[in-house]
Design a binder for these strands. Sequence first.
DNA 1: AATTAATTATATCAATATGTACCAATTACG
DNA 2: CGTAATTGGTACATATTGATATAATTAATT
Lengths: 209, 209
Amino acid sequence: MHRFSKKVSMTVVKRLPKYYQYLSDLQLNDIEKISSRELASLMGLTASQIRQDLNSFGGYGQQGYGYNVGELKEAIKEILGLDSEYNCIIIGGGNMGHAIANYERFKREGVILKGVFDVDPLTVGTVIGSVVVKHMDELDEFIKANEIDIAILCVPREVGQKVATQVTELGVKGILNFSPLDLDVPSDVVVENVNITDSLFTLTYLLGE
Amino acid sequence: MHRFSKKVSMTVVKRLPKYYQYLSDLQLNDIEKISSRELASLMGLTASQIRQDLNSFGGYGQQGYGYNVGELKEAIKEILGLDSEYNCIIIGGGNMGHAIANYERFKREGVILKGVFDVDPLTVGTVIGSVVVKHMDELDEFIKANEIDIAILCVPREVGQKVATQVTELGVKGILNFSPLDLDVPSDVVVENVNITDSLFTLTYLLGE
DNA sequence: AATTAATTATATCAATATGTACCAATTACG
DNA sequence: CGTAATTGGTACATATTGATATAATTAATT
């Protein structure tokens, strides 16, 4: 849980991963400190906005100095909850599920793939992302036994809601949803949608402007 | 190009694909008309907002009647530029590229997959989404010969910028970018980012709230 | 045909939310 | 010790959303 009380808007939250990415890169390049102005020019934001964003979580900067890259990165990492570990499962072992399972970055940041599930007999039993794909029939038992925090849904639209209901009833509290539909879940469950079709349509819109 | 002159904000544009999705669903269920209030309750928005959103493109509703589902859907389809066809290529034939290539929805909405490119000799020559994967060496020639509008980037971070520069120099005007980095492109090129890692981090943030 | 109820278009206003500019206070550093 | 740099907070500006009022239009009812 977070230690700060001030309510932070979703707009700011959505920028945090980007800060984290840029700060990680800076650290890899052995940059020790950075000013809001420099970071702004790097990220294409205004310095003012960066100071406001960061300051809504606490005073990580120092007047006359700027921000210490390492410290700020660690702070944001903690804000993003990446100082904890998460057990996750992927539901749907098609190409999308496959792609996600092989994202090295997930494991590196503490999101551990515990299982992959599918209904297709040809997929069940194969190895994806170092785990053996199990049949959906085993899902209930598995979630109960493994304290799964996050379910990554890579299933067709038709079954998305059904699967979402199933996993939330078993106690999963977070869903990363690649299925192109809006999920209806209990209020204590958080969903983050990755809607590729919507992104494509935004692109075709912009192409016509 | 659009026939309306009023400037529409990105916030509204990002909601258009969602309207399109819901209206398509309604049409499939043979619903002929819908009021802003009904649509609002369906989509989790306010009726006021829906009327304002739609009205920024023109008066598609009828007083005393509501909106005709079919007509409104077609109107939004046109606004999104989905009345034209687009030639696209996928760069990177890994699992992500594979997943996108098999999205039936893309073709159905007029985004035609013309080619898939990769550098891996094991991938080159295989068939993905009904096209034979070509080597990146053939990219320049292919883009010139096939009037490619959209490039879908599914390549590792390290080569993302290089590939983006390459395709924009060859005249590609739209990029759907799955590589986890911010691309630097000419101002007449539009980029839509799908950053899965960022989405995951937003989720872990929300889990800690 | 006239009346009534429902509903949107349009405009306007109020309330939030978000982004930017400014400046005092603080720090780094020569 | 003085100067330049930089943050953090405040105040201001802009953007977005939500609510409301009125006129116009449609559909249903009498």
